[in-house]
Write a protein that binds this DNA or RNA. Structure first.
Lengths: 261, 261
DNA sequence: GACGCCTAGTCGTCTAGATGAGTTCCACCA
DNA sequence: TGGTGGAACTCATCTAGACGACTAGGCGTC
């Protein structure tokens, strides 16, 4: 039952700092210093109670603190574990370049397989609907849109879900309205429709997930999401697609290249 | 003491869902539906205890749930409030374009004043130090660097802090090593030194803040940070600066433009 | 009017205990 | 051999109460 000595220190009873914060500090430091490795099990609540001589609620308070920081996650009946850092997927700013599209495969699939992961696309849903105010504004006062909703998984883990919106009069009746848009994806189809793509605008924000997002992406406590809204413009400056994406922040790093002039 | 009726519903005792989650759901829904507006005070813990007929710890558990989601923040002695959404600063991908630099003022200052905010720069610290492994790799195997550390505030609120690293043999003895690098900032000085800037690489990640970041940025619970690492390259492809930035995620939206070819 | 004190209301921290539920493993029995 | 039941351990939820500390407003004193 007793804790291996040296793993965790003692409390400072003279400190102003709340006891549960001191305990969280101790555990955090032990993780930082590698005394608890990624994926390792923390001492059980009972062991921590004994070690620090406090009540169980205080220990739980400490752990819930660390959970909120995304450092640990608890599993009912098993224990509390140092949260492993999943491999991140790097999204380069040229990922929608035409030269990649011409290969004919979806960007997500190609990239994932190159990284040795098993990609999946999920819950595909294609609908015709009224544009929300925001989408309408981004598409240039379009009323009705075709929406394409899907979820992406890597090795069975959901990492991202996205909804594309296209003006209905552009997409209706084309392969874009089919579940499978064909080789090169909807951007290839848009170009075949004579909409030569010129550039994309991306807006990036980070925030904590909603309840629904937590569920859809199976997020652990303390994992934010990246919310990315991309608008595609054709060579005449018309917006042809808006893609609204929510990503598990611990699975991604976004890379952009900016010109200096 | 009693709660205005209609604000919050009742619990479902037959539900599997934990009581504290049901209470959090009720409050979340009330916020979503606008029954509690931004900045409004939630019912006190005592009122919620009475309304739902549960113990105080259960109510506190609900509230701490909502805090973790970034929905509310509590103020000791005052109450729990719906977290107001602060105005966000939009960072455009051309913010380092030469044409802006030539105005002579710092980008942060110009932008903030244009938006009607009061900008401040803080805790400026210039040091010579050994490069960390990561910084060294990004700068191309540079051992010693000049580091410039500073914090940015808008209307007194810290929103971002950043550290720039430059190869020491490039920056030493120049105005870059001075606290005030002069008009146009260090990028202008680099160009005067013959390092014509070609492009920047930016890497964006989001995560929960460390203890220190929470303190430096005075972050509320449930606010993630955006971690941005920018590398500046000159026209000969040499990395001349790495800037490591941590931003309060609720204060920013990043905007990028990507070419389609 | 300015200041300080007091008080009621608020959240923060901590204790001690009860019950529930998921996981693991092993001894026992068929 | 193989399955089953249970013990022991884990975290999850909830209760009831105590004390501390911060805030705001009222009130009296100077």
């Amino acid at each position: 039952m007793a804790l291996p000595s040296g793993l965790l220190g003692a409390l400072d009873p003279t400190s102003d700092r709340a006891v549960f914060r001191q305990i969280a500090d101790q555990i955090r430091e032990a993780i930082d210093k590698g005394r608890f490795k990624e994926g390792a099990k923390l001492p059980s609540e009972a062991e921590l109670v004994e070690h620090f001589g406090v009540s169980r609620m205080t220990v739980r308070n400490s752990i819930s603190q660390l959970q909120g920081e995304g450092l640990v996650s608890s599993e009912h009946g098993k224990g509390v574990f140092v949260r492993p850092r999943p491999p991140v997927r790097r999204l380069a700013s040229d990922r929608f370049a035409r030269r990649h599209r011409e290969q004919g495969k979806a960007a997500f699939t190609v990239e994932a397989e190159a990284a040795g992961s098993r990609p999946e696309v999920d819950s595909l849903e294609v609908k015709e609907e009224r544009a929300s105010q925001d989408i309408s504004a981004r598409l240039g006062s379009v009323r009705k849109v075709l929406s394409r909703r899907r979820r992406y998984l890597l090795d069975g883990r959901p990492v991202e879900f996205a909804t594309s919106y296209l003006p209905l009069d552009l997409a209706r009746g084309t392969q874009i309205a089919e579940p499978n848009p064909g080789p090169g994806g909807i951007y290839a189809r848009l170009e075949e429709l004579g909409r030569h793509l010129d550039h994309f605008d991306e807006e990036v924000q980070a925030r904590m997930p909603s309840q629904e997002e937590t569920k859809t992406l199976r997020l652990a406590a303390g994992v934010p999401v990246i919310h990315l809204v991309r608008t595609a413009y054709d060579s005449e400056g018309r917006a042809v697609e808006v893609c609204d994406t929510v990503m598990a922040a611990d699975a991604y790093v976004l890379a952009y290249q900016l010109p200096a002039n």
